[in-house]
Design a protein around this nucleic acid. Structure first.
Lengths: 348, 348
DNA sequence: GACGTGACAGCAAGCGCTTTCTATGTAGTC
DNA sequence: GACTACATAGAAAGCGCTTGCTGTCACGTC
């Protein structure tokens, strides 16, 4: 039924070993023989059996990319960048590798299970993107799993995720705290003193770091924070809309709203408009990430640009062993403040 | 070094066969034995060797999802929906399957190579999303490849992609032509007679169908189209921006611009604003897809909502054999016109 | 002319799992 | 109590490929 290596060998009148060598090209084969084999492969329309070859060679060409939410461009952009460096067909890498994107949906169990599945497949490398979940038990389980993966020779790279010491993973983290601070400082410099903050889900590192940065800035400028000024939600527009209404209800005198990311900021803008408030005249709005649509918001969104593409590409290269990991296995990249029309000094 | 089935068997004092059966749960095993095995698995921290099991069982649990551009939410949303039904960890399906998203970047070679790679891995199913490339030669190669996959027992589902007869694939197509017609008719009803059209890349089916629908509408209303009114570009905001400037240059009297998708429409809006034109007072703008950010544009974008999530979920279920394919192996879903603030009657 | 030396090609032993077929113990039946 | 039937466990034959090792030539070389 299906064509095997042996069939090709028979047709080319050589041994299976020779066919294998032609296909893998890591052993000298006479040109004439190679040609004969290739011809047979072509004629029989032979396709290598991946599992069999992975089993025999004890390695596979799978590379896993874990993302929290594939529908979110934040992850899509990173995944795309990582993949372009992984090789995959058309990539610049030599061998053809199957870069597989796994969508965890932010669920701890899924995250862990995907890692097990990749471990099962003996993945060549794994890249984890985005914030981690802060639950201690889950973190311990993850770290143990990562440790096992690295021990088994799988290269593990974290992209935009905090370092996990003792796991052997390479970390390219975003300086969410520093960037968050910078963003809020920008608003404070503009004269804002009453700032609402729409945070992401509670248990994420990204959420916490950005919020900490925000609070650092407030503290540094002697602004005492009102607990009513912070609302937690999801990382989507809907959540931003609702959270903003809630903030307005709690304290209608807010003059600025900082959102957990750009999608949330967009929702915030919509809520403000629907409440009859002008941006930035009545309330300033700031986002995070600088996703492609952010510049098209009206007014254009002030936000922090994260080098998603660059970081992803670098993570991909490191995962493939084509670039030296940073010294110490960790490096932190700062975001860049993009000041645009959605922020201005408070009225009056 | 690595723990194998045999190690577990030894520890549990049973044969490897029994361990395998416990793990796969498709053969009666006494409760006490099962428990002993599970305990050993746990103690040894055993992880099944995927390739070995795929080889022996001649099937794998990989499911491929091909997308044109993973950074584009259009694909991200579909991929997410498909994956949620594939099972994967946490999905509702029984077995754990590895849903792998492959980013072709719209390149024909990559598309083909990814299919070969999936074929190699003996993927259980493959879902192809989005428009196809119209090049005859590539289409023939693709069809042949799909045929081979279906022949080998891999379920192939097309989601938002035109049917490929004779390949054995199931097609869930979007009625891009009908939706395009409806959108343009909406503008014509508003009184527009000079409509610019920003199309996607020339060689895509999606591009062609949407454009045909647009032209159908013009023809149906006796509007003769000026060739200057159509510009081709990519499916991104930048392209929309540039194309709009070009349209304005060619014919400043246009009263409406229809874009290939929402991202392009956003770029168009930016270009119009930068040119000092008001939306919709001076020029109406319409998009396609109704991506999440479209409602947040100012003014909100009139567009055609495509049931990405529903279609993706259905494609996923069909791929898993959990839903009957549509009769004839093909079904077409219509988009829904969403009339919002970006379109209005022309001034004067 | 005997011999070392590359350059290839083939043999055969796995890689770690699944699954058919067979063996064994236990229970039910008349 | 002998016999059939069932439930469960094991033996062993692969699945299709890779690769270490062992030839076998065809050449130089002294």
């Amino acid at each position: 039924m299906t064509v095997t290596l042996a069939d090709v060998a028979a047709r080319a009148q050589v041994s299976p070993a020779t066919v294998s060598r032609v296909l893998n090209g890591n052993y000298p084969v006479a040109a004439s023989t190679r040609e004969r084999v290739l011809k047979a492969v072509d004629e029989l329309d032979y396709v290598l059996n991946g599992p069999a070859s992975a089993l025999a060679a004890a390695t596979s060409d799978l590379v896993g990319i874990l993302v929290n939410d594939i529908a979110d461009p934040f992850f899509g952009i990173m995944a795309s960048a990582i993949q372009s460096e992984i090789g995959g067909p058309g990539g610049r890498a030599g061998g053809e590798r199957l870069a597989v994107v796994c969508n965890t949906g932010g669920s701890p169990e899924r995250e862990l299970t995907y890692l097990t599945l990749l471990q099962r497949q003996r993945a060549a490398a794994v890249v984890l993107t985005g914030g981690a979940i802060e639950d201690a038990q889950h973190k311990a389980a993850m770290d143990a799993k990562l440790r096992k993966l690295t021990d088994a020779g799988t290269r593990v790279v974290l992209c935009g995720r905090p370092q996990a010491p003792e796991t052997g993973a390479i970390a390219l983290t975003f300086d969410n705290r520093g960037s968050g601070r910078e963003l809020t400082e920008h608003l404070i410099r503009l004269g804002h003193r009453r700032l609402g903050y729409i945070a992401g889900p509670e248990e994420r590192t990204t959420t916490r770091h950005r919020l900490e940065g925000h609070r650092d800035a407030l503290a540094a400028h002697g602004i005492e924070e009102d607990p009513r000024w912070t609302v937690h939600g999801r990382y989507d527009r809907r959540s931003g809309y609702e959270a903003t209404l809630e903030l307005l209800r709690r304290d209608p005198s807010l003059t600025a709203v900082v959102a957990a990311n750009d999608s949330v900021a967009l929702g915030a803008c919509a809520a403000l408009r629907d409440s009859g408030l002008r941006i930035p005249d009545d309330v300033s709005v700031a986002g995070f990430d600088d996703l492609p649509f952010s510049i098209d918001a009206v007014p254009a969104l002030t936000t922090v640009r994260l080098p998603l593409t660059e970081a992803g590409a670098r993570a991909g290269r490191i995962a493939m062993g084509r670039e030296e990991p940073p010294p110490g296995g960790i490096t932190s990249v700062r975001g860049e403040l993009m000041v645009r029309g959605s922020t201005a000094g408070p009225r009056g």
